[in-house]
Design a protein around this nucleic acid. Sequence first.
DNA 1: CCCCTATCCGGACTGTGGTCCGCTTACTGC
DNA 2: GCAGTAAGCGGACCACAGTCCGGATAGGGG
Lengths: 205, 205
Amino acid sequence: MVRLSSTLGDVTDELQQIASQPPRERADAARNRLRVLEAAARLFAEHGVERVTMDAVAQAAGVGKGTVFRRFGDKSGLALALLDERERELQQAVLSGEPPLGPGAPAKERALAFLDAYVSYLADHLELIRLSETATPGARYRIGAYRFWHRHLAILCAGTGDPDYLAHALLGTVDADLATVLREEGYTWERIRRGVRDLAERVLG
Amino acid sequence: MVRLSSTLGDVTDELQQIASQPPRERADAARNRLRVLEAAARLFAEHGVERVTMDAVAQAAGVGKGTVFRRFGDKSGLALALLDERERELQQAVLSGEPPLGPGAPAKERALAFLDAYVSYLADHLELIRLSETATPGARYRIGAYRFWHRHLAILCAGTGDPDYLAHALLGTVDADLATVLREEGYTWERIRRGVRDLAERVLG
DNA sequence: CCCCTATCCGGACTGTGGTCCGCTTACTGC
DNA sequence: GCAGTAAGCGGACCACAGTCCGGATAGGGG
């Protein structure tokens, strides 16, 4: 829809847009959001991510189930919200941290450093990451964070075959579901870390 | 439980064991199994795998829901049963077919041929394979077929870093969920095929 | 031909993720 | 303060995967 020269309307719209960028969260909403996150974190830590139902989270938070779903969309959204902070840290480190993770190092070094950092992230939050990626088929690839990592790697792979595909394939090595199985089979995190690095080195070699 | 020298009993047991190796399937059971497979194949083709419920399959087959689940375990089991034939074909080709897929060719060639054949398999049955792999978290890695492919690749990777890990990582490039997303993003099967091959060549190089 | 039982059937039932909508309440402008 | 209203609430409700068990039956033994 294109509107022409309705000056007053345009100005009002613009001001509204600038003034209320995030349309402001109501106090009760903010309180409930925190309650839910807190309850979810506690229950997940206590009983393991898989064995906690959304009803249980809602009840523990003292809110209705509808509130949890309205706020977080679905179970993977809740996991994502809990991961948000750590995820931002990693993204920040990649965007403007020290080399080799941040800008400044050669592309291959940066890619290896990123994958290494990601393995650590995975090791620290495996259950939550897995939940966020496997709640629904294809969830992993729709998450904003995945797109971010993918773009980052694709840029670092520039000049190597099909960078877009390669970035997907490299991210495949740090799939939470695969990592879970490897751990169950007795792999140490160090073995996984070496495997990822070794493969990435060959691919980017 | 150990039984000593109750000769009659032992002989009877042995005979029973030998005579009825597969304890024989009752006629009604066989009929219903075929009905269910037929109905599932039709509905899946007609409406797409995702949009067909197990109730619908049961109803279309004219049997109760319990029958479907008793026979196939769960939804991914049903998908697996439908894939069974094609899967066996590929396994047979790998075990005793012509080189480079079958025995006789150099390990690297065989691995590349296998991945190439698998991409074709994926292209032909993407929806079903995806269903069999994503019905439940970790499903992919528990399927007998995955173990088979994994062992095959691991053996072919012998002498290259961590063969067991590498085999998992290579299979990650032909993950049905990833392939689905790539297709949605506009990748042709040829592009995926080239990407898989290129990566595998670098890794096994 | 009939009986006996291991096998199988089927649909009512459960648990869980996710939706919906009438009611409530926090904020806004007066 | 107060009224109007949009944002938010919450629990009843739905869909679907998967379970269970009382009843039916195929098929072998007599």
